[in-house]
């Protein structure tokens, strides 16, 4: 009962503290929302780049073409080499006839160009190889180029590589910005709580004198910071949900080529990051700022 009372009083004190220092509280609140929106946007960008890379990975295939002339023994050797290569998860033989058919399907509008090619098919037999991860495509290409009997290897490593580079760059920027914005937010929260503690310094002295523990006194300031941070994280969550669904998802769909990761699939993670980060900032900021006033 006593603990519950103390918690309820801390909650009431926290709310009063926010109202007493409304300007500083609003500043902390706005800063936190700004920080979370930037961090959230970058995180969602990473999620989408990852999804695109994954998508490329799903269709991630290497085509290896064998020399024009080969016998059964060479065919078996090549098959064996592909099967034993690292990172290869599957492969299929594509005959020159099948390749031509596929080309005809792909170039339906220009079918006339391909007319008569059945008699003099310029394409070669080959293997379509699936690789486990886009990051390993380069390694498989190198391995295949060293196999006797393989004349040519084709892969879209440049596209995958550019996406990987972008993702890593965004990741780095995200981490840097996260640290910077978390630092700024903590600093502003610290100042808000310091101001609150200063205006309540007489109360704190009386609390200490009647036998309140440091923990009890801290609790009301931590509660104040946590209320600001929790409200900030919830507002940020709904703001980013609106911005993402209205701008990003619609922009992706309008390209007709790409599909953004639906917000429904990532909302749990976003909410967890927002609430977790803001609580850490709130607790840290308030604990760091209150100690000076507890020495009575």
């Amino acid at each position: 009962m006593s603990r519950m009372n103390r918690f309820l009083y801390s909650l009431a004190d926290g709310l009063k503290g926010i109202l007493r220092n409304l300007m500083m509280s609003l500043m902390s609140f706005s800063m936190l929302i700004g920080s979370l929106l930037v961090v959230g946007s970058l995180s969602l960008l990473v999620v989408n780049i990852d999804a695109i890379i994954q998508d490329l990975g799903d269709q991630n295939e290497i085509m290896v073409y064998v020399h024009e002339e080969y016998d059964d023994s060479e065919f078996n050797q090549i098959s064996q080499a592909i099967m034993e290569a690292e990172h290869v998860v599957g492969f299929t033989f594509v005959s020159r006839e099948t390749a031509l058919e596929e080309m005809k399907n792909d170039l339906e509008e220009y079918a006339s160009i391909l007319e008569g090619m059945e008699q003099d098919n310029p394409l070669r037999d080959g293997f379509r190889i699936q690789v486990d991860d886009p990051a390993n495509v380069e390694a498989v290409v190198t391995a295949m180029e060293g196999v006797d009997g393989i004349g040519n290897v084709e892969a879209r490593t440049d596209v995958v590589e550019s996406f990987l580079k972008t993702r890593n760059a965004v990741n780095l920027i995200s981490i840097g910005l996260m640290v910077l914005l978390a630092g700024i937010s903590t600093f502003i929260i610290m100042n808000t709580i310091k101001m609150s503690a200063y205006t309540r310094r007489e109360e704190i002295a009386i609390m200490r004198m009647v036998g309140a523990t440091k923990g009890t006194i801290r609790l009301s300031f931590v509660t104040e910071a946590m209320i600001i941070c929790l409200c900030g994280s919830i507002v940020s969550f709904f703001a980013i949900m609106f911005l993402y669904q209205e701008l990003i998802e619609k922009a992706f769909s309008s390209t007709g080529l790409l599909q953004a990761v639906p917000f429904q699939e990532v909302w749990g993670g976003v909410l967890l990051i927002f609430v977790g980060a803001s609580l850490v900032i709130g607790v840290l900021g308030s604990l760091l700022s209150i100690n000076k006033y507890l020495k009575v």
Binding site: M1, S2, R3, N5, R6, Y9, E202, E203, I206, M207, V210, G211, A212, T216, I217
Partner: peptide, 20 residues
């Protein structure tokens, strides 16, 4: 505490110790 009434000032000493 100037912002509290006489009653609230006295009650404050009990409140911070968790009295109901």
């Amino acid at each position: 505490i100037k912002k509290k009434t006489a009653e609230e000032n006295v009650a404050f000493a009990m409140r911070v110790l968790g009295a109901g």
